[in-house]
Design a protein around this nucleic acid. Structure first.
Length: 746
DNA sequence: GATTAGGGTTAG
């Protein structure tokens, strides 16, 4: 006879064959007449020790297989035609002195399938043992009981000094008695699933005892726990890792009654929820949040970057982590809005933190808010708020992930949804939302605007700060402000940033290198005879090289004037020689002789040496008025006056650097051109003759873009940008220039 | 197979 199923245990009675008589387990003895007996029993009844209400049943052969496939724990079964044997395990298991063996082909079993709930909805016509729950004020020492309670304190399971994890909790009920409870189990998943104070717990088969004058509970053989959210009016959903457990309408009622009662208790109703917007420095508090990113700091510390969608009133500490060490999304946008809390998780909590995946909802218990200074922060800057989950389990300190459907998360999720545009921002690199952050400080609070840039803007206008992505979408002409880092710059050889610029024809060219200039000098000095000009007084000397004469000419117009030594024309020197001479003479104009007439050198060479400086003329725009120069009416000869007298279009020294700027939204190439001298606090012409000033520029560039630095190591620049168009092959090309910005001086 | 803990702050 195979195992058969019926829908209701009351149907079992109808299945009892007429020749058999039903009996109870307690009345079974070794002398019972088996062929006339059948028993109705249920697995795992409650009160099984005292009256031997529990009996071991052993199935053999196909019956064993059928039964194991049909029956589950808690089912009511009808057994017939069994054999009664002495129980070999009686002394050990304290169950019935007998056991039943089912091995014959005539034996039969009916199984009444009762409903095991994994989740609601309930199966209504279920039958299960009548569990009795003892009010907490009625507990007697050294008994095994079932209780319901509201959790007033709990610790997440922690490793005990023994072999198991230990959950420690305290519960209460309508009697207002507080009872401590310890649960030991090797398996973490068997521990009660508790999220917060106010949760409701049902304990089955817990042993009572007295400890320090109050009752305590300890799990004992056959124990189980089920927990429920304590929120009134929320669905009563049992939380357990167990695949089968009893759960009925009376449980729902009990949970609802406890919820209602607890809601009016001061210890729970006064428990105000702390968020990032309400946390105060020094506080220990519980935080419900979402994990954004994590990074292992060292063997005893993990950084969790979290948010709860609320904006902290204190500046939040940002713990810098190399991007490749960070698991999870970039928090840059949320950092800027003071939405990201950096939580340092220590010691015993690492075991839990290691398993967490970004995106998970988290509950921290006894998190410590601490004001501290970042390592690179100046003492005069305000301290930032950091969060520490210290080692240990005092005050229930710990953390756990929360299932997304948890009622405790409903308010968090609705707050986070209001920031859904931030995620959108991350996806499309759109700067729209950053405008909140980029509005002027007085509008949003000083703490949102760091003052850690290497540059300072000098412009008067108060235009909004934009992201680079926004700048790129804007329509020129436009002035705007950006906060960006230097990704790259050109030229990498900084001496190449020094340019010659003709303000007349807008030609720009590199400063010729010395070898090119020296060549012009050599060619000019070759086989030349000193020129002979009526307007000039000349003195000549032989050089060391045969056939080369060095001549100096001074304008006769100037002889007798105080300025006569201010402008000297020199012929037949090498580049090196004129450099040496220029130390002693204010203005040296190198010339050559063409058919005995004085002529300027090829304008590849400087037309004027003045101390350390060399001045060049524009090849396109210089007029050849040297035939009849006029040297009167000039008080002080400078490069302008000399150029004018010689009919030379003076080229200006300029510094040109092309930056590749970068922020979290985009990159953009911007020139430092018209504003370069102000930016570096260096004049281009001075830099042309000074190694010190060139070194200064190099030092500044090494500060804003340290060699071999990662992006995070590079400082932010607060920049004023000018967006404009230039014609390029009849097409309008949009250009960007850094204007009104200076490097901060130390 | 007994034991573990039995709430009450790290000190980064």
């Amino acid at each position: 006879m195979p195992v058969q199923k019926v829908n209701d245990s009351s149907d079992l009675d109808a299945k009892v064959p007429s020749h058999l008589q039903r009996t109870s387990i307690t009345s079974l003895t070794m002398t019972s007449e088996p062929s006339h007996r059948c028993v109705k029993t249920q697995e795992d009844p409650l009160q099984r020790t005292a009256e031997h209400t529990s009996i071991n049943v052993i199935f053999f052969g196909t019956l064993a297989k059928d039964f194991s496939q049909s029956a589950r724990q808690g089912d009511v079964v009808l057994l017939a035609d069994f054999t009664i044997k002495k129980s070999p395990s009686f002394l050990r298991d304290k169950l019935h002195p007998c056991q039943l063996e089912m091995d014959g082909k005539d034996d039969f079993v009916y199984v009444s399938v009762i409903c095991f709930v994994k989740s609601l909805p309930l199966c209504r016509n279920t039958i299960y043992a009548k569990y009795t729950y003892v009010p907490l004020n009625d507990l007697k020492p050294r008994t095994v009981v079932n209780v319901y309670g509201v959790v007033t304190f709990f610790k997440q399971p922690f490793p005990s000094k023994g072999s198991d994890y230990c959950s420690t909790l305290k519960i209460t009920d309508q009697s207002d008695f507080k009872v401590g409870c310890n649960i030991f189990s090797k398996k973490l998943e068997d521990h009660p699933i508790l999220f917060r104070v106010g949760d409701i717990i049902r304990l089955h088969r817990f042993k009572t005892d007295v400890f320090r004058d109050s009752m305590s509970l300890l799990n004992t053989f056959g124990w189980s726990t089920v927990t429920f959210d304590g929120t009134t009016d929320s669905p009563v959903v049992p939380r357990t890792s167990s695949k089968s457990f009893h759960f009925g309408e009376s449980d729902i009622r009990t949970v609802q009654e406890l919820r209602q009662w607890a809601a009016n208790q001061s210890w729970i109703s006064n428990d105000l929820k702390v968020s990032l917007s309400t946390v105060k420095p020094g506080m220990y508090f519980d935080l419900t949040c979402q994990l954004l990113a994590k990074a292992v700091m060292d063997s005893r510390c993990i950084l969790l970057k979290v948010w709860d969608g609320t904006k902290c009133k204190h500046p939040l500490l940002n713990v810098a982590v190399a991007s490749d060490a960070l698991e999870g999304e970039s928090t840059i946008v949320k950092d800027r809005m003071n939405l990201t809390a950096n939580v340092l998780v220590y010691d015993n909590h690492l075991e839990m933190a290691r398993e967490l995946k970004p995106g998970t909802f988290l509950q921290f218990y006894n998190l410590h808010a601490l004001l501290q200074r970042a390592p690179d922060q100046q003492p005069d800057q305000s301290e930032h708020l950091s969060f520490h989950l210290h080692g240990g389990t005092s005050y229930g300190r710990g953390l756990r992930s929360l299932p997304a459907e948890s009622p405790a998360l409903q308010s968090l999720k609705s707050v986070l949804e209001k920031h859904v545009d931030l995620d959108e921002y991350d996806e499309v690199n759109d700067g729209t939302l950053l405008e909140i952050w980029y509005t002027p400080p007085e509008a949003v609070g000083w703490w949102l605007l760091p003052n850690d840039e290497e540059t300072v803007r000098t412009c008067e206008h108060n235009t909004r700060r934009l992201t680079l992505a926004r700048v790129k979408r804007s329509t020129p002409p436009l002035s705007c402000h950006v906060r960006a880092r230097v990704k790259k710059y050109k030229p990498q050889q900084l001496y190449q940033c020094l340019k010659l610029f003709c303000s007349n024809c807008k030609t720009m060219e590199d400063v010729p290198d010395d070898s090119a200039v020296a060549k012009v000098f050599r060619e000019s000095a070759k086989d030349s005879q000193p020129c002979d000009e009526q307007w000039a007084a000349t003195s000549s000397a032989s050089s060391r090289e045969p056939g080369r004469t060095i001549s100096m000419h001074i304008s006769r117009d100037m002889v007798g004037e105080s300025t006569h030594m201010q402008l000297i024309f020199i012929e037949g020197t090498t580049l090196d020689e004129i450099c040496v001479l220029s130390r002693d003479y204010k203005n040296l104009v190198p010339v050559r002789s063409v058919n005995s007439r004085m002529t300027l050198m090829d304008l590849t060479a400087p037309f004027l040496f003045s101390g350390d400086k060399r001045y060049y003329g524009c090849k396109q725009c210089s007029l050849n008025t040297f035939q009849n120069p006029v040297f009167t009416g000039v008080e002080t000869w400078d490069e302008q006056a000399v150029a004018q007298a010689l009919g030379v279009q003076l080229m200006q020294y300029r510094l040109l650097i092309q930056f590749e700027l970068e922020d979290q939204t985009d990159t953009l190439e911007a020139l430092l051109w018209e504003n370069t001298e102000r930016f570096f606090h260096v004049s281009a012409v001075d830099a042309s003759g000074s190694q010190d000033l060139q070194d200064k520029i190099q030092t500044i560039m090494d500060t804003i873009q340290p060699p071999d630095s990662s992006l995070e190591e590079r400082p932010w620049l607060d920049l004023c940008l000018s967006v404009y168009t230039v014609k390029d092959d009849d097409r309008n090309k949009v250009c960007y220039q850094i204007t009104n910005t200076e490097i901060k001086e130390e």
